[in-house]
């Protein structure tokens, strides 16, 4: 399995390099972006996972409507993991369970997006963006080695701000750095939401 994962990683890197080098100086081409995310649970989500999700990625397509406005589609993946030391949990009247509890949560939001670059040119171009769509959620709570898997589909929305750093004045290829607030209602088994803050860094380039 590990061999397969490594193989796919090489494929991914090769694809990114291939697409990056084939970028052209076109402003109206469909743009592809890929970003590495770190997401931090917010609000009551912190009751279930306190530590950040370091294994997060986003890939998206964006079509330029104007030189400053783009609309598109983003797919993200975040893996949250938290293991709590052994503790005794009440399990209804007269019942207790002692267990090491592990929460393993994966979120895959697929969002329609719009982002607006505040300047038309510049070495650094600030942008703001919004997105809304569906969130595919896998919430596995393990008591010891015993899993209680739950899968759900919920609404998701995102607010975003950041900067684009074009590689040259006319190049559509740019480094993208920013932060997001990801609104992710859940409402299941006492969990209100899976909302989180995120920071990301990646690259955006034109497809042709």
């Amino acid at each position: 399995m590990k061999r397969i994962i490594v193989k796919y990683k090489y494929w991914m890197i090769a694809a990114i390099v291939l697409l990056s080098t084939s970028s052209v100086h076109a402003q109206n081409d469909l743009q592809f972006n890929v970003r590495y995310n770190v997401n931090i649970p917010a609000g009551s989500f912190r009751d279930f996972v306190t530590n950040p999700a370091y294994k997060g990625f986003t890939a998206g397509l964006a079509y330029p409507i104007t030189s400053q406005l783009r609309v598109g589609l983003d797919v993200s993946y975040n893996d949250y993991y938290r293991k709590y030391p052994r503790q005794v949990y009440p399990n209804g009247a007269g019942s207790d369970i002692s267990a090491v509890l592990t929460n393993s949560i994966q979120q895959i939001p697929i969002l329609l997006t719009a982002d607006y670059t505040l300047t038309k040119k510049g070495v650094i171009r600030p942008y703001v963006g919004v997105g809304a769509g569906v969130n595919f959620i896998s919430f596995d709570q393990y008591l010891g080695e015993f899993d209680n898997p739950q899968t759900s589909t919920r609404f998701a929305a995102r607010g975003e701000a950041g900067i684009l750093i074009p590689l040259s004045s006319y190049s559509p290829t740019a480094i993208r750095i920013g932060g997001t607030y990801n609104y992710a209602p859940y409402n299941k088994d006492g969990v209100d939401n899976l909302s989180n803050w995120g920071i990301h860094a990646g690259v955006s380039f034109a497809l042709h």
Binding site: K9, F32, K55, F57, V75, Y81, S104
Partner: peptide, 24 residues
């Protein structure tokens, strides 16, 4: 190209889950 990128991305992302059973 976009679909290829998305599929490759999905495969990469799917491999990024930390398996709780391997950490017990």
């Amino acid at each position: 190209k976009a679909v290829m990128g998305a599929i490759l991305g999905a495969l990469l992302l799917g491999s990024c889950k930390k398996d709780p059973l391997n950490n017990l």
